[in-house]
Design a protein around this nucleic acid. Structure first.
Lengths: 171, 171
DNA sequence: TATTGTTATACTCTATAACTATA
DNA sequence: TATAGTTATAGAGTATAACAATA
């Protein structure tokens, strides 16, 4: 049944966009919108892999290294991230969260989680349990460190292949 | 079991962020990054509710009306959206997709869907079926037109309540 | 010479404030 | 007077290009 895969992907796409919107609304609704979503994702990454480098982070979040360097500069300035040059290779930097960074991450995550929980509360318990199982399947498939080859290649090679850069800036 | 709801929300949050990242990577990887994600979401909304107004769209996507006005100006310029003043109330505008707009939306959606399908292909069929069910539960809970009261109130009221606007611009 | 990260510069997105047109 | 949308202006985010420091 070849359509099953496409149907599944379509349903996933729709639902993820819907849920993501709820997360955005929640993040915007805070009195102090402490974090942008890219910053949120950066903190999540650093928290998950402390001591990672700028390049790794940039690739994961999907920014160029100059942009990420600037973002990190801001986060260091706010005391959320610690940036230390690596002992073995002094060109690199090691990124870790400060206590404030961890606290803010937990707060942001908690707020989003709370907003989702409110919506989910209207689901029957059984459906919630199924949902948890499904989310774990998703996490397994999407969190693999090696991204699908096509995506990675495309991401790396698309720019060099272009002869005239169409000035696609600022997302 | 009160923790179950929180666990569910936490799993959902993690997974949605992961999947969203895959979608972003895919959209960025195109030769011609035709649409930003906010533009993508605007087209989705207009497609779902043709004839909607600028304010409705802005609220749904989560932009101010001036920002949305500018975005629409661009989309109209590209021939993707049709903007007509409303007959009953000539202050309002009715937004609809052009044929090109629908085509581009389908293309963008298809690309994202394809990227997701590639990841999902490694899931056993049974897990995919469970996933589809779970996504339908999610869609049911998150697509309700009346957003949870707290979120809507927060969104509307937070700015007027502030005495000193902390210049939170540019997301 | 190659690689990691930063600085310089420019452009896009989005916001707030002020305005126009209509109700 | 209140409301829908636009225009004016400014700030934040991100990109490309050029550079500095280290390997």
């Amino acid at each position: 049944m070849p359509s099953s895969l496409q149907v599944c992907a379509a349903e996933l796409l729709d639902s993820v966009l819907l849920v993501m919107q709820a997360i955005r609304v929640e993040m915007r609704s805070r009195r102090t919108p402490d974090l942008t979503i890219p910053q949120f994702r950066a903190l999540i990454f650093i928290n998950r892999l402390p001591g990672g480098t700028l390049s790794e982070l940039a690739e994961n979040v999907g920014l160029t290294t100059p942009s990420m360097s600037k973002m990190i500069e801001g986060l260091v300035g706010k005391g959320l991230v610690r940036r230390e040059s690596c002992a073995q290779d002094r060109r690199r930097v090691n990124l870790t969260l400060t206590a404030s960074g961890r606290a803010l991450l937990e707060q942001a995550r908690g707020g989003s989680q709370q907003a989702l929980a409110q919506r989910l509360s209207s689901l029957p318990v059984q459906e919630r349990q199924s949902l948890v199982q499904a989310m774990r399947s998703l996490a397994r498939v999407f969190s693999s460190e090696e991204a699908p080859p096509s995506a990675r290649e495309a991401k790396r090679n698309v720019r060099p292949l272009k002869t005239v850069s169409p000035k696609r800036t600022g997302r």
